[in-house]
Amino acid sequence: MIRCSGLVKSYSAGHRRKIVLGGVDLEIGRGQKLGLLGRNGAGKTTLIKLIGGVELPNAGRIERKMTVSWPLGFGGGFQGSLTGYDNARFIARIYGRNYRDIQDFIEDFTELGRQLAMPVKTYSSGMRARLAFALSLAIEFDCYLIDEVIMVGDQNFQRKCHEEIFVKRADRALILASHSVDFIRQYCDMALLIDKGEASVKGDIDEAIALYSNL
């Protein structure tokens, strides 16, 4: 279970402070799938970063009673000057996994071949997405934090992601930021609509989507 209560996040913008999240409460249990809806800049990514512990809230609490992945998006989590293999070794070390055990899965899932021996900064964003996904799947988490942009890869990648996340790991929790209402309708069982710093969880997906469409 992850429980957030009263999360506030603001950034300084010149002399003023811009409040991105003004007190968000949410709770997600094992196996639940939460979709985050909101316009560009509404704070979906910020919320995911807070839940992932990448950035810290100005106020409020986050309790994590299950293992939570790092946020999967295009950026972050890699050292560009290191090779794909070195990044994999590093991640295996800090999460206490045996590198040999995850190496095959990473080679197989990413299909990057010899590119894995090249520095990550030479990768396209799609290639980075493959690596990030493969690593977080290899480590195995109870809850995955995913920015939908990462799933916009080629057909083959989309099919693999679908298979690994929604079929093989159907029992895991998921927090997914997305602009695609169809996507959320298909995969999520609750939605959080973020607008002007306010956010509330809707158990009824269709209601959330209707509100989102009217923004």
């Binding site: 992932g52 790092w70 989590g77 890699f78 991640i91």
Partner: peptide, 9 residues
Amino acid sequence: SSLMYHRQV
């Protein structure tokens, strides 16, 4: 800063 993606760091 990208290391902050991993909470144990």
